[in-house]
């Protein structure tokens, strides 16, 4: 008994589906790219501010500008933190392997390094000290890193003047590598609080006691 088979129908449906599906993917990729572009723009803006501050400091590193610098750093930090949060959100949604996210994170890390260097120089010259905390982590098999990461926002709330810089060591970023080598970091999580290295998870209370 020969029952008919509608091969042409199935082929047509398959072709149309592939076209529709591909169009959707293409639009999706285009939209994600424009999200990347807009974030790049935002990052450029943040970077310019860093450059300005650095130039200003080169021109005039006398201590009378300390309050001005301090105020700038704090204002700047707010924008940087919210941008960092956006990057984290993006990473969660797109996955760690997304190239656009990785590139943004790398550039963001470089900028964070510059900010940290600025704060270090500031602390050399100015009487009011800005506390800084470097946080090195990896996303590969490090539940302690996740735990440590959760301490950050909590700490920031209680100490809004504490500058927190987080560095993902899997980024292949020269800036992050340089910092790692500087502080001889090989285990994760590790934090550097005002230049002192602490390996392993540090609770919120422990860090707070060290600050005071």
């Amino acid at each position: 008994m020969d029952r008919k088979i509608s091969w042409k129908l199935y082929l047509t449906a398959l072709i149309i589906s592939i076209i529709v599906f591909s169009a959707g993917i293409a639009v999706g990729l285009f939209l994600t790219q424009s999200v990347n572009d807009s974030l790049q723009n935002e990052l450029s803006g943040l970077r310019s501010r860093t450059t300005e501050l650095e130039l200003l400091f080169l021109l005039n590193s006398s201590s009378n500008l300390c309050s001005f610098y301090s105020q700038q750093v704090k204002a700047f930090d707010q924008d940087t933190s919210s941008f960092g949060a956006k990057l984290d959100f993006l990473e969660k949604k797109r996955g760690r392997l997304d190239q656009g996210v990785r590139d943004l994170k790398k550039e963001f890390s470089v900028m964070q390094l510059r900010d940290y260097l600025f704060v270090s120089k500031f602390n050399e010259v100015c009487p009011q000290k800005i506390d800084s905390l470097l946080f090195f982590y990896t996303n590969e098999n490090c539940p302690e890193c996740t735990k440590q990461g959760l301490v950050g926002p909590d700490l920031k709330q209680k100490h809004p003047d504490l500058m927190i810089y987080a560095f993902d060591v899997d980024l292949n970023s020269p800036a992050v590598e340089a910092l790692r080598e500087l502080y001889a970091i090989n285990s994760y999580p590790s934090i550097v609080l005002n230049g002192v290295v602490f390996n392993g998870y540090q609770s919120s209370q422990e860090i707070e006691s060290l600050l005071n």
Binding site: F21, G24, K86
Partner: peptide, 15 residues
Amino acid sequence: SLWLGLTPIHVISFI
């Protein structure tokens, strides 16, 4: 966050 979290699957879902 709706805009930020966009991935191709969202576009496909809309289609």
